[in-house]
Write a protein that binds this DNA or RNA. Structure first.
Length: 471
RNA sequence: GCCCCCAUCGUCUAGCCUGGCCUAGGACGCCGGCCUUUCACGCCGGAAACGCGGGUUCGAAUCCCGCUGGGGGUGCCA
């Protein structure tokens, strides 16, 4: 049975690149009827926090990803220690008493000479006697894996074919830190093996870690899983997507009011597509069509514009009214609107969903419909100060009966045009300025169908105030 | 520097494996037009790419080699 895992380290919010890795793991697992493990890689106690762990879990759920098993590496240190001791006992690893300063010096020297740095192996051949003495003296030590020199470790990557890296490129590497905590390369192998992970789907940034891990698989006698290294996501400047590119965490887009399904859809089809001209797919369709062998090998540049477009497509074409309402609600609450009766808001959303791509855009767009008191923009006020505008508003109030709707507005507008000879554009812009306080936004006729007549009257009256006060 | 990976419009990609159907298709963005009370939405149209050089072949975006370019890694981070 297929078993994959997503293994974030809780040192920040869920990054878009990691979210995409999670999505591909999820799609692969579900497509193959396998299972997905979520594993929190918090071996680095310095940088890992519970808050980030929680935020990652929340954001994964928000994206619509679910998993079958959950682990936290910080709770498995006993297991790792046992395996480290075994390697030590078997002579496959050794204690290294070099200090970080020693290593730093070695690194600098290598750099100066222009040769690639690799651990000198100073502690590699210490006698058991020397090791014991140093340990007893309380000299802190790390544990290093004994790596065979000059060996080409080659492995098969499902996307790239055979990849070969020479052990001389990295040398004996640390598997247990001097504080006793195990390192990433070590624990990841133990966990993947023990948890029965069959396919390791991860970012390309781990490609060069793979030979190290293979050496650990061998030392521990575990059998190898299949490796699939996904290309990374790049920023507009073609460097790895990072904070300096602006919004790069799922949280950013969630807070900005992007539709989660759209982010899922966008990320899933960034670097992969099912050879169709369509680009909007439900999660179920993506699961059904997913084929990991079709993932592009080249890194992909993240394009916020396209994501925004896709979010808009979900808002205006994909989401049903209830879902739209559910997604919009927190943003509406947050904006402090007062016209928030559920049926009314739903009606508003249905009529206006064509005009925004995200829910923060929505709050801007819907101000005149959801707020009782509106602010008047400078441009709107300027327009209202004209004599024509005064005439439009006065006549409109006269002609407006009890109710108001799109038919009525159009009828009245036409009458004013005929009777007073005012250009339609002026009529409509005046109404818009009066009703919304802006010169652009949702169609005035649509607003007439939605906004209660008393508010219409209220705002028209108020508009008159602006007119007269300017005289 | 060294190691590894990659290469179709500005960007995401289809086509490549199994050469001819490719005068290279779609999407975002951009430009123009239509619709329209404005913006938007929608519709129609347009500009825009096989990195370069060698092979192989009757024929190459598709296969091979080199170059160039891009990316990732080079931690007691993951």
């Amino acid at each position: 049975m297929v078993c994959v895992r997503f293994a974030p380290s809780p040192t920040g919010y869920l990054h878009l690149g990691n979210a995409r890795v999670a999505i591909f793991n999820y799609l692969f697992a579900r497509h193959n009827g396998g299972k997905l493990i979520l594993r929190i890689e918090d071996t680095d106690r310095e940088r890992s926090t519970k808050e980030f762990e929680e935020s990652i879990i929340e954001d994964l759920q928000w994206l619509g990803i679910d998993w079958d098993e959950f682990y936290r590496q910080s709770e498995r240190f006993d297991i790792y220690r046992e395996y480290a001791e075994r390697l030590l006992r078997e002579g496959k690893a050794y204690e290294c008493f070099c200090t970080p300063e020693d290593l730093e010096r070695e690194r600098e020297e290598a750099e100066k000479k222009g040769i690639p740095y690799r651990y000198s192996g100073r502690c590699r051949d210490l006698s058991n006697e020397e090791r014991r003495r140093l340990r007893e003296r309380g000299v802190p030590y790390t544990v290093r894996l004994r790596v065979p020199p000059n060996r080409d470790v080659s492995f098969k990557d499902r996307l790239r074919g055979f990849v070969s890296i020479n052990t001389d490129d990295f040398g004996d590497f640390i598997i247990v830190r001097s504080d006793g905590s195990p390192t990433y390369n070590f624990v990841v192998v133990i966990d993947d093996a023990l948890m029965g992970v069959t396919h390791i789907i991860r970012g390309e940034d781990h490609l060069s870690n793979t030979p190290k891990q293979i050496l650990i698989y061998e030392a521990l006698g575990f059998s190898l899983p299949e490796f699939i290294h996904l290309p990374v996501i790049l920023g507009e400047d073609r460097s790895k997507l990072s904070k300096r590119h602006g919004a790069v965490s799922v949280r950013n887009y969630r807070e900005e009011g992007y539709v989660p399904e759209a982010l899922f859809n966008y990320l899933a089809t960034l670097g992969w597509n099912p050879s169709e001209e369509r680009e909007i797919f439900t999660k179920e369709e993506l699961i059904r069509m997913f084929n990991i062998d079709d993932i592009s090998k080249a890194p992909a540049v993240f394009n916020r514009e396209k994501l925004k477009w896709m979010s808009g497509i979900y808002i205006r074409e994909v989401l049903d009214t209830d879902t739209l309402y559910r997604y919009a609600l927190p943003f509406i609450r947050n904006a402090g609107f007062d016209l928030t009766d559920e049926d009314y808001v739903k009606k508003v959303l249905e009529k206006t969903r064509d005009s925004f791509d995200t829910f923060t855009e929505m709050t801007e767009r819907l101000k005149p419909l959801l707020k009782r008191e509106i602010d008047m923009s400078e441009e709107a006020l300027n327009l209202l100060r004209t004599e024509e505008s005064r005439m439009v508003i006065e006549t409109f109030i006269e002609k407006m009966k009890e109710g108001i709707n799109s038919q009525e507005v159009k009828r009245i507008a036409k009458e004013i045009q005929k009777e007073k000879g005012i250009k339609p554009k002026i009529i409509w812009q005046t109404l818009r300025a009066c009703i919304t306080g802006e010169l652009e936004g949702v169609g005035v006729d649509i607003i007439a169908d939605l906004l209660p007549p008393e508010i219409w009257k209220e705002r028209l009256q108020k508009g008159l105030l602006y007119v007269s006060s300017s005289k």
